[in-house]
Computed example of a mutant assay.
Amino acid sequence: MKKLFLLSLTILGFATTINAQNIAENAIGLRLGGSDGLGPEVSYQRALSDNNRLELDLGWRSARDYDGFKLTGLYQWVWPIEGDFNWYAGVGGGLAAYDYDARYFNDLDEDDGETFIFAAGNIGIEYAFDFPLLLSLDFRPEIGFGDDFYDNNDLDFDIALGVRYQF
């Protein structure tokens, strides 16, 4: 009886705290973080329901000795904290490729590159202003599957600030 009472109380507590989200139908902007040397990412978010969305990020870098891109897709769940603050968590993965010129690296004999896949998680907090601006701070652990740049033992942690226009 005691267990049934506690379960009922828990369900009632969740039911009273869950309310409709006010996440934007679309948001586009920049995700400014480490991105494993690939620089800032162009970020797009698309609402799928009141509390779920899809996020797509594209990071790239082009330099004298290194070129690369990284495409990430995440499915996210969004929960309200208070007012216009939300927190979110998500899972996903992506595809990346890089190519570098050996003449700029002393320990390489020839040009090299790699294409690889990775799995990613995501957790963060966001604030939606009264005007169409969304700021977020998130943490994205990633594990890659490749030969050199990403190997099976490589777990990377990416922290980033997101600035997006909501529409």
Rank of each mutant, 00 (worst) to 15 (best):
Y66R: 04
A102G: 08
A96D: 06
T10C: 11
R53E: 14
L7V: 15
L71R: 02
I159F: 12
R61H: 09
A119R: 00
F69G: 12
L108T: 15
Y75Q: 08
I11T: 15
A47V: 08
I28L: 12
G124R: 00
L30K: 03
G124H: 07
D67F: 07
R140F: 00
F105C: 00
D36T: 12
D148Q: 06
L133S: 05
R140A: 14
E142F: 00
D156M: 01
G37P: 07
E142P: 01
F105V: 13
G113K: 03
I18L: 10
N122Y: 01
K2D: 14
G39Q: 03
S35Y: 12
A47P: 05
I143D: 03
K70C: 01
E142V: 14
E41G: 14
G146K: 01
A97W: 07
A15F: 09
A160Q: 05
A63G: 15
G92Q: 06
L74S: 07
D50L: 01
S136C: 04
G90S: 09
D112N: 13
L54K: 05
R64P: 03
L12E: 07
S62Q: 10
N106H: 08
L74I: 15
I117W: 05
F116W: 04
G146M: 04
S49D: 13
T115R: 01
F14Q: 03
W79T: 14
G37S: 10
R64A: 12
L161Q: 04
L7F: 11
F14R: 00
V91F: 14
I143S: 07
G113E: 06
W77L: 09
D130N: 14
A119E: 05
F145R: 02
G73L: 06
G90Q: 08
G68V: 11
L7M: 13
N152I: 13
I123Y: 02
V78S: 10
R53Q: 15
A24H: 08
N51M: 03
S35D: 12
L161T: 13
G59L: 01
K2M: 05
Q45E: 13
A47L: 03
F5V: 15
L95E: 06
F157K: 02
L6Y: 09
Y44P: 00
A63Y: 04
E126K: 04
Y44W: 11
S62H: 08
L137T: 09
R64Y: 12
N153W: 05
Q76C: 08
W60A: 14
F69Q: 06
A120R: 01
E41P: 00
D148A: 11
D84A: 13
L54N: 11
L9P: 02
F69M: 08
I123H: 00
P80L: 00
D130S: 15
G90N: 07
L108K: 10
F116G: 00
L133P: 00
I23F: 01
E126T: 11
F14H: 05
M1V: 09
R64D: 15
A20H: 03
I81H: 04
A15P: 04
K70L: 12
Y75R: 02
D65V: 02
Y44V: 15
W79L: 11
G94R: 03
F139Y: 15
E110R: 06
A160I: 01
